[in-house]
């Protein structure tokens, strides 16, 4: 690991004063420390943000507010979250391991890096880690890679489960920098790789995520998160689906659908939602889940897998129709 300076400020203003190019905020450390050990990340300044007042889970009239430092396990088991937004709770509990969920914060979760093996291996080239060096995954080992939103420069999946649920729910992140505060919808926060896969989101250098805000959605109570993976637990998704259904009088009035494990960013599926609103069968609606997919040699199975994952999630929430 490269040498760095360490600071543990108590106030947000103090943390922002220390932050900038070459610095990294440290929350749970489950991404940052891991990647620093591999020399994939080598910040000169590490700012431990755990003393900052960024805690609290609160359900207000405008929705759910989650402080950026709240831990994955605490959010998942919070009564209001589990009751009003089961898909958030389930996405978190199906993530990582109990130990990691005790450590990892929601802010860090949304900022976690891809698990692409080339990205993590300093001995190989990788456009995301070292811009312009090439993407060995295009012709190499790409079984776990994305089929949606890919480019010739990068096909890495975004690995967060809870981000999929949050994108389905139209959540936003509250950001604070030295120049002030702003909110960004999570769906706009993440950027497609295009020719610049090293630019993953709209966070500016030195900017801090302070809060996640999930708008109120009454029928989010009827929701689920289905995750398909190579082993039963402690594994990233091959495909996953976050689904909420507004079911009234036996009819689907509205739906939210997003998928993970298959996209370069958490992937909302407006076409599937529209088909469901139009009264199409679950089978026909979920067939639209892989629209625009561009599989690589090793991951074409994900096209059918993601359709079936969406179908299963819909059936879990609303029975078969």
């Amino acid at each position: 690991m490269r040498a760095f300076d360490f600071a543990a400020p108590r106030g947000i203003a103090g943390a922002l004063r220390l932050a900038g190019d070459g610095s990294a905020f440290l929350a749970g450390g489950t991404t940052l420390v891991d990647l620093m050990k591999l020399n994939v990340l080598a910040p000169e300044h590490v700012i431990d943000i755990n003393r900052l007042p960024l805690r609290g889970i609160r359900l207000g009239p405008d929705g759910l507010h989650i402080g950026a430092l709240e831990r994955m396990d605490d959010i998942a088991r919070h009564g209001a979250v589990a009751a009003q937004y089961p898909l958030i709770s389930q996405a978190l509990l199906l993530s990582a391991s109990p130990q990691i969920r005790n450590m990892a914060s929601i802010g860090g979760n949304l900022m976690q890096r891809t698990r692409c093996g080339y990205f993590r291996d300093m001995a190989t080239s990788c456009n995301k880690r070292s811009p312009g060096s090439g993407c060995p995954a295009q012709t190499g080992d790409n079984r776990g890679h994305a089929v949606l939103g890919t480019s010739a420069s990068c096909a890495a999946t975004h690995a967060s489960d809870v981000a999929v649920a949050l994108v389905a729910l139209d959540a936003s992140v509250r950001l604070r920098g030295r120049d002030g505060e702003r909110s960004v919808r999570l769906a706009d926060f993440y950027l497609l790789p295009g020719d610049t896969p090293h630019v993953e989101n709209r966070l500016r250098p030195g900017e801090l995520i302070t809060e996640v805000i999930v708008p109120r959605l009454q029928w989010a109570r009827h929701s689920t998160y289905v995750k398909v993976r190579d082993r039963q637990s402690y594994e990233f998704a091959l495909a996953s689906a976050a689904v909420a259904v507004d079911l009234r009088g036996g009819k689907v009035r509205d739906a939210r659908v997003a998928v993970g494990g298959v996209g370069t960013v958490p992937w909302r599926l407006p076409a599937v939602e529209a088909a469901l609103r139009a009264g199409q069968s679950f089978e026909r609606a979920s067939a639209l889940a892989a629209e625009g997919a561009r599989p690589l040699a090793g991951n074409s199975f994900k096209v059918e897998l993601v359709q079936r994952t969406v179908l299963r999630a819909l059936m879990e929430v609303a029975g078969s129709r």
Binding site: F6, L26, G28, T30, V33, D48, N50, I100, N102, M103
Partner: peptide, 10 residues
């Protein structure tokens, strides 16, 4: 928690 991903400085 996992002590391998925890910096003792924290």
């Amino acid at each position: 928690v996992l002590s391998c991903l925890t910096l003792v400085a924290t």
